[in-house]
Computed example of a mutant assay.
Amino acid sequence: MKKTILLIFLSLCIGTASYAQKPQRVAYIDMEYILENVPEYLEAQNTLDAKVAKWRAELDKLARYIEVLKTDLANEKAILTKDLIEEKEEEITLKQQELRRLESLYFGPNGDMYLLRKQLVKPIQDQVYNAVQSIAAIRKYDFVFDKSSELVMLYSNKKYDISDLILNRINRNRKVDELKKKKSTKPKKELTEKQKQAQAKKAALAAKKLADKEAKKKKIEDARKAKLAERERKRKLLRDKKAAIKKKNDSIKNNKN
């Protein structure tokens, strides 16, 4: 399929050249090579990889917890009441729903990974595309291919590779932007007493909001632990009751013997 697309494209180029009676100017770039030599891209990729690793670890931890719940239920089902079985099954179902929700949140079509990649990587890709358009306009190229894309290149002559030109343009633009930023940066003025008080008030409100949020989380967690402790207490009572009944039955059986 890819070779077919390339042959069709080359046929169009030849046809266009014959019609216009002038050769088409063609160049290509290696996008992977360019991005690997842009420090901002490597930094962005490392940031993205770290986030993805953190999300996957969180999902793996939750998945393992669900498996533990399933194993516990299977081992204890024979001694649990119907209500306790339903409670444990409900807990497993809720955890499974949470796992699916997090998977979609992190790795869905419009999930956090997609948004973070767009936020981190797209501006750098835009730099490359802008540099390609600039070089193509200056050198009057009719077509610029990406060697690392899906369009298969059966042969490429190095003299048509403008990847280093693109890198140079990106570096030049970066230096210009840094110079502009340096010129526009002014020393910070000393805050007035009123501004300091306003900042202190804002910081205090933020601290209070954070403390309230942590207290709410602790309350929810304490309630969850209490509920689990109550379930465990009921299970223990049930086990003790069954053990007492078994002991009594064994005693009666022994007395009859």
Rank of each mutant, 00 (worst) to 15 (best):
K2E: 03
K2Y: 08
K3L: 12
K3F: 04
C13T: 07
I14P: 08
Q21F: 06
Q24V: 11
R25I: 07
A27E: 01
I29Y: 05
I29R: 02
D30E: 10
D30N: 15
M31R: 13
M31D: 01
E32A: 14
I34C: 03
I34F: 02
L35Y: 02
L35V: 12
L35A: 01
N37K: 15
V38K: 09
E40D: 15
Y41D: 08
A44F: 05
Q45V: 11
T47C: 09
L48T: 05
L48G: 01
L48W: 01
V52A: 01
V52N: 00
V52G: 00
A53F: 13
A53S: 12
A57P: 07
L59G: 05
L62M: 07
Y65A: 15
E67I: 12
E67M: 12
V68S: 09
K70M: 00
K70C: 04
N75R: 14
K77Y: 09
A78F: 03
I79H: 01
D83G: 04
I85A: 07
E87L: 15
K88D: 05
E89F: 01
T93A: 15
K95M: 12
Q97G: 09
L99W: 01
R100A: 14
R101L: 10
L102Y: 03
S104M: 11
Y106H: 08
G108Q: 02
G111N: 07
D112F: 09
M113L: 11
Y114W: 09
L115G: 07
L115C: 05
Q119A: 10
K122R: 14
P123M: 05
D126W: 06
V128M: 04
V128W: 04
S134Q: 10
I135G: 00
A137H: 05
R139H: 12
K140S: 06
V144Q: 02
V144P: 03
V144E: 05
S148W: 05
E150W: 13
E150Y: 12
M153L: 15
Y155N: 10
Y155K: 14
S156H: 09
N157S: 10
N157R: 13
K159A: 14
Y160I: 09
Y160R: 05
D161I: 11
S163H: 02
D164E: 14
R172A: 12
K175S: 13
V176D: 01
E178V: 09
L179P: 03
K180A: 08
K182E: 01
S184Q: 13
T185Y: 02
T185R: 10
L191K: 15
E193T: 14
Q195C: 05
A198Q: 15
A198P: 07
K202W: 02
L205V: 11
A206R: 15
A207M: 07
K208A: 13
A211T: 07
E214M: 12
K216S: 10
K216W: 04
K217D: 06
K219A: 13
E221M: 10
E221H: 09
A223C: 00
R224G: 08
K225P: 04
A226R: 14
K227N: 10
R231T: 10
R233S: 02
K234W: 02
K236T: 10
R239W: 00
R239A: 01
K241N: 07
K241V: 07
K242T: 02
I245S: 03
K248I: 09
N249P: 00
I252Q: 01
N255Y: 12
N255L: 11
K256S: 03
N257R: 11
N257G: 12
